[in-house]
Simulated assay, not measured.
Amino acid sequence: MKGKEWYQQETVVESYEDKRFSRGGGRLTDQLEKEAVGEALAPVGDKKILEIACGTGRFSVMLAQQGADVVGLDISAPMLGEGRAKAREAGVDDHLEFMRGDAARLPFPDDHFDAVFAIRFFHLADTPEEYLREMARVSKRQVVFETYNRSSGRSLYNWALPMGSRLYSRREVDGMLDAAKLRLVDETHEFVVPFGLYRKLPGGVAKAFRRVEEAVDRTPLGDRLASISYWNATVE
C-alpha cells in the first residue's frame, strides 16, 4: 500500500485537514465529496456502515450525524486519534467506532455491514482486487468506492507526484467488480479539474472553475474527461 508510512507520521496528521479541506478550493472539494458519499449511501439512518481508510473521520462523522452506526478502519493510529476527537466534539462517539486494521484482512464476519465504502483509497492500493473482495465479503448489500481515471488529465502529471497514484481504466474497474462478485448499479464521474489543483485556488476562483466543470459535465465529453469516478455496486 503506497503511503502507508507517510500517513502514520504525527506531523502529517496534524496538518492533514488544514492543508487539504479547510479553506478555498479545498473546502469546496470537501463539500462535493461529502455530497457524493451521502448520495451514494442514502438513506443512511439506522444502517450499519464500514468506512475503509477512514483517515480523520470526515465521512464517518458525517454519516453518524445522519443516524448511521459507523465503524471507521484505518492503518494510521494518529489519523484515528484525530477521528475520535472529532467524533466526541460532534457528539456522535456513541454511534461511531474507530479501529486500526488492514483493509486486506478485515476483522469482521461475512455480511456484517449494510454498506461498505472507501474514498481516496484505491489510488494507493497495490492489490485492489483483494481489497474489493474483502469489502464485498463483509457487506450484505452495498459497496461504494472511488478510482482515479487513466484517461483523465491526471495522467499528464501523475508521474511527478511524490507517491504517484494508481490510475484505472474502465476495463480494470469492470474486472475488479466481476472478481468481487459485485454488480454495478450506478456510477458518477467528477472533477475535470483535478482536486489537487482545486486545493490551491481561492474559494471564488474554485467556484468559477466548478461552474465550468458543470457545463462540461452536460456534454458527451464530461464523463470521459473526469478525473475521479464513484462506483456504487451491490453484492450479488
Rank of each mutant, 00 (worst) to 15 (best):
L80M: 05
Q65C: 09
K2P: 00
S155H: 03
G45V: 13
D186S: 12
I228T: 11
L80E: 05
T188Q: 14
V143I: 06
T29L: 03
E33Y: 14
D217A: 12
F121M: 14
G3P: 02
E14T: 07
R183N: 12
P194R: 06
D178F: 03
V61C: 03
G38H: 13
L106H: 04
D174T: 06
V13W: 00
D46I: 10
F21M: 04
I75E: 11
E39K: 06
L182S: 04
L124V: 01
Y16T: 08
Q142R: 15
V192T: 09
W231S: 07
L201Q: 14
K4S: 15
Q31E: 03
E82G: 05
F113M: 07
K47Y: 02
S152K: 09
R170E: 12
I52W: 10
C54W: 08
R20L: 09
A68C: 13
G3V: 01
L50S: 06
R170V: 03
A103P: 06
E214M: 09
G25L: 10
D111P: 07
H112I: 07
T29Q: 05
A77M: 11
D223Q: 11
L221T: 05
A87D: 04
Y198H: 11
S60W: 03
K140E: 08
S15C: 03
M62R: 11
A226E: 04
G81N: 14
M79I: 03
P202N: 06
K207Y: 01
F113L: 04
A68V: 11
E33S: 15
T56K: 00
I52S: 01
K86C: 00
G72S: 07
V235C: 12
M135Y: 15
G175T: 14
A160C: 05
Y198L: 10
V212Y: 08
D223W: 04
R183V: 13
R166I: 04
G91V: 10
K47N: 04
V212T: 08
P202D: 15
G222V: 01
L96Y: 01
R150W: 10
A64L: 14
D110A: 10
L41R: 13
A40R: 00
I49S: 02
P43S: 12
D18N: 07
D110E: 02
F98G: 00
I52M: 02
F209E: 10
G204K: 09
A36T: 05
S229E: 09
V37P: 00
K48G: 12
E172K: 06
E51V: 13
E190V: 05
V235F: 01
Y157N: 13
F145K: 07
R199V: 09
T147D: 02
